[in-house]
Design a protein around this nucleic acid. Structure first.
Lengths: 133, 133, 133, 133
DNA sequence: GTGGTCTAGACCACA
DNA sequence: GTGGTCTAGACCACA
């Protein structure tokens, strides 16, 4: 069963946490294409969260092509993830994420080498995880 | 004179940008302990920013011990730098930032190589900027 | 002043009507890049609609790159409209719109020629309108 | 035998697809006045669709005068076709559909030529399909 | 002042 | 049953 953890407090908005964890689960293969998602109400109950909040997360994931709605039946993991963004937009977003990341990490006093190595080892781990599943 | 660049638009909140750049300047020695900071109004005017925003940044820096207020005279760079994080904590934060970053980037369909290269080129650019200052 | 008409009843959702009319106004040049949008609350009041509904419309337009948020100051018409979608996605959406359009029109018993001519004359008119502004 | 194609996913509601295809079949003469329609359950089974959905489609078609119910026996294609729209009304609807379509497509940054070509090729495809049937 | 998020609760279209 | 929309009203971060 899909495991989603909500961190209350000052962190990211709840709807975004839900988005993130679901799309992560899809990428990691813990949610398989065609699989039905829990209903808005069911997930809201489980997370002790307002249904609107889940609906918003589901809405964004649908707009992003991660989920697909089947009228009146429910939401399903999209069969094929379409690349909706233009190359320019993808590059823009990568640059933005890199900038944000380096900004966070800069104050921790790691050397460039250590940072790159941390990225690389996590990338390798992620590949391993996927093929292991 | 203290050089602060504000990026408007969707980037980090302005007050945080001010915080970051000031504490960075302190670490880099461009601001020396005991030095007087520009007044809230003066800095706000220079940055073309709401005085409240500068006040908030100064407030947080004072709370963090980077700046010190001298009654009726103004704000000064604190004589002693605040404690650093433990190595464990630093590593934990790096790992967390890496994970967050890779997750954000995942749906953009870049290869590991492209991601690492983007990080590296930004790191090089940052180093260049720093040594140029 | 921005003129937005809300049609209640069975038609399209209100937030979408707002989206549509605003992006239309941008394309037509009735809203110029850099111009500030009315605040969520102000527009909501004018349209006699819940602020959340306006906020949703504004949110979608921001996500689509039509508007840009300036923290704490308000929303502005984006200076340059970025093409965020991939060519594939653009083609997919065009095909979908064509299909929907032809489906609606089919029952009206127009010949293919009449349909094409209607499209062409409206396209010419749109160009004229833009250069006239 | 009546051939109905259901497209699941985000396209038009299923009940409307059924309505449309049946009324189209009547206009095209593939369903003749007086002919008996398949039962709700039979059609639902064939289309792998909820019986409620077929029932709703039949209901709307009956209300529109396309089908007629004969007490206890079933539904039949109505002997007389319903009134057509006035030319003015048809033209008004075409203009409205054109406007809506062009607006949807506008933000996709296609040239007028590309738009017209997309319409034409879809029209040709549709004609081919119809004459093939 | 600005927009952004969330809740509670209603109503709708659709299957 | 399903998701989608809307309202009313609260609270937050930011400038």
């Amino acid at each position: 069963m899909l495991d989603i953890q909500i961190a209350t407090g000052n962190s990211a908005p709840i709807f975004r946490q839900i988005c993130d964890q679901i799309s992560k689960a899809v990428v990691a293969g813990r949610l398989t294409p065609g699989e039905q998602m829990p209903s808005v109400r069911a997930l809201a109950e489980r997370l002790v969260v307002n249904p609107n909040t889940v609906a918003r997360a589901y809405g964004e994931l649908t707009a992003a092509g991660v989920l697909e709605s089947q009228r009146g039946k429910g939401l399903y993991v999209a069969a094929t993830r379409r690349q909706m963004l233009s190359d320019d937009e993808r590059r823009r977003r990568l640059a933005f994420a890199v900038e944000t990341f380096l900004h966070e990490v800069r104050l921790l006093d790691f050397t460039p080498g250590e940072i790159v190595r941390a990225i690389e080892s996590e990338l390798t781990a992620a590949v391993g995880e996927r093929s292991a599943t």
